[in-house]
Design a protein around this nucleic acid. Structure first.
Lengths: 337, 337
DNA sequence: AACGTTCATTTGAACGTTCATATTGGCGGC
DNA sequence: GCCGCCAATATGAACGTTCAAATGAACGTT
């Protein structure tokens, strides 16, 4: 017995109270410039007084828009939740809220394919647009949405031949800048502690690292690890090589504690004997001892740009011709003196 | 010019194709037991084939329910995003998805009070229920929702005289258990590194710690710090006292790196000379060197219980008489050998 | 054989809004 | 004084669904 929500004041109630028609009340909200100032005042005052708020369902049913953006949460390994998600979602909610849109979280039910969940939302009119993030290599969500002609944008990048409705960090440049910072501090031989490059953004970072090394005339060594223990071992291997790197860049902040441990095991003091830099500015980066120099993503600006693009698509039907790369911000802390 | 969403297949289309009435198609979805099996088969097959999905707006408008739960995201300090939020939201989306509900993120616009944002959602019929978390002492959201008689539940606790529609970790017991673990490993004098107890859950943890210390006949010392640097100082103060504690509990994982640094500064090896335990099982707890023993919240079970309670309120109009405390899980890692 | 019961399905109305179009009133031009 | 025009507001219809009540068919009972 699904209890029905108590119905509140309707547009009709306000109209009667104000002695005007429904449409006039509707206009007071949606097209105030059409009303005579005194009428507008009277109506808006009554709207406020009576606590009227247009019924979203009725509005959507008639107008065909919902003012809702669906965000398909990336499927996260429960053991290692996507730590960026929290910050990005935060920024996304703020950015969309400012233009009157809300965020609906969409997730396939267990066993249901992603695309099915997307189709359900689209067919049911659950949202005006989709926002995707964490698009991996085999991910067909983008193709699917593009084929359906439904408005969407991507935090990340889309392949050639697909709508270029994406915004991303310029990871390569950010990483090259990080290497530039190292070069500026006198480092000539640097190490990169990386993980398997099965995610696009990791590849961009690695490429940026190598480009930075070449561009600044440095030399480098690399090692790969996909779990904390082997990361410590890989770090020690890098640091024990000859010549030994004087700076270590980890491709993601989560590798930083392992890098610190490797340094300690090799008798090196991070921030003095060895410079360490990370990537992502996870919340714990500032908590480590010494605090970690890392690259912060401009999450709020990314969210703003994504929402802006979505509005362009929704309102004007125009899909951006090119993606947008935004610069990161290097946060210098004691690990890289 | 807000572009209108293209309308898709409607219930009418399916009804015509199947040679039945609208209502029969509706029943196929909402009350399958009312249909003759063969009719049901024919209709569901056509529904699948034509890709029909009921329009959420129309459904909500008529039925007064939305199958949406509004989650008011706690206002987060951008510098230190609520790291739990990511995991909890993850669990919440999964839990609600399994019973056919989606999560709508609600956040006041800049300058708008929380309650105004809530009222807007309620009046506009944007959700069937509210879920709150991170309810701080001065927070009036609970009172507001209770006064309005709108379905809600709280991850956390509600005060006396308010609906007891909450689910929370039994923080006190969890912390006492953690102390019990220390006692079992032979520790007799333990330290607590805490922060200002301005949040209810921190008070519960501190009380649990003291109760555990009393209950196991231990002695303890405490110190308070609210930022990383003073946390290191506070940690050294604790460790430098005489008699020196052989185990250090930090009231939140974010203090753990500071505790590790303090130990190192005092010449102690964490996991050998000193045991350290944290609380929350933040993603980085497992990454620290040595990995941190900590208390993991049963986020999925909390989310399940919360969603269950919401459904009871929504469907049956029955508000639970008492809150629900769930046990945590101690994750033993190398920091507490 | 007439009659109530139950089951399966249909029908008309209603949910609250916005769209498209119609109506009203006032004002200037000639 | 009449006409046309524009601004301001009003009216009827429509969006797609579910509710409440009505219809019809099948069946067992007496």
């Amino acid at each position: 017995m699904p209890a029905r929500r108590a119905r509140g004041v309707s547009i009709e109630d306000v109209a009667r109270a104000a002695g005007v028609s429904r449409q006039t009340v509707s206009n007071a909200i949606n097209a105030p410039q059409r009303l005579r100032p005194e009428t507008l005042d009277r109506v808006t005052e009554l709207i406020r007084e009576m606590g009227y708020s247009p019924d979203q369902s009725a509005r959507s049913l008639r107008s065909g828009t919902r003012r809702i953006i669906a965000y398909t949460t990336p499927e996260t390994d429960p053991a290692n939740p996507n730590a960026l998600m929290s910050g990005f979602l935060e920024a996304l909610v703020a950015a969309s809220g400012e233009v009157g849109y809300r965020i609906l979280l969409v997730r396939p039910r267990p066993g249901q394919p992603q695309e099915k969940a997307i189709d359900e939302v689209i067919a049911g009119g659950g949202a005006d647009a989709f926002l995707l993030s964490d698009v991996l290599d085999g991910d067909t969500r983008v193709e699917h949405l593009a084929a359906g002609g439904f408005p969407f944008a991507v935090f990340g990048r889309t392949g050639a031949g697909l709508p270029q409705s994406w915004v991303d960090l310029d990871s390569a440049r950010a990483m090259a800048d990080l290497v530039g910072l190292l070069a500026g501090r006198g480092h000539r031989h640097v190490g990169l502690l990386t993980m398997s490059l099965d995610q696009p953004w990791l590849r961009h970072r690695a490429e940026g690292f190598r480009a930075g090394v070449r561009g600044h005339g440095l030399t480098c060594v690399e090692a790969t690890a996909d779990d904390p223990e082997s990361a410590v071992a890989a770090g020690r291997e890098l640091l024990g090589g000859r010549p030994a790197p004087t700076a270590l860049v980890v491709i993601d902040d989560w590798l930083a504690p392992a890098a610190y441990a490797a340094a300690q095991a090799e008798g090196l003091v991070v921030g003095a004997d060895l410079a360490v830099a990370g990537f992502n500015d996870m919340p714990y980066a500032a908590l480590l001892q010494p605090p970690l120099t890392t690259l912060r993503l401009p999450l709020r600006r990314i969210a703003d740009a994504l929402v802006g693009r979505l509005l362009t698509i929704i309102d004007d039907g125009v899909t951006p011709e090119t993606g947008l790369l935004l610069p990161g911000e290097i946060v210098v802390r004691a690990s890289l003196p």
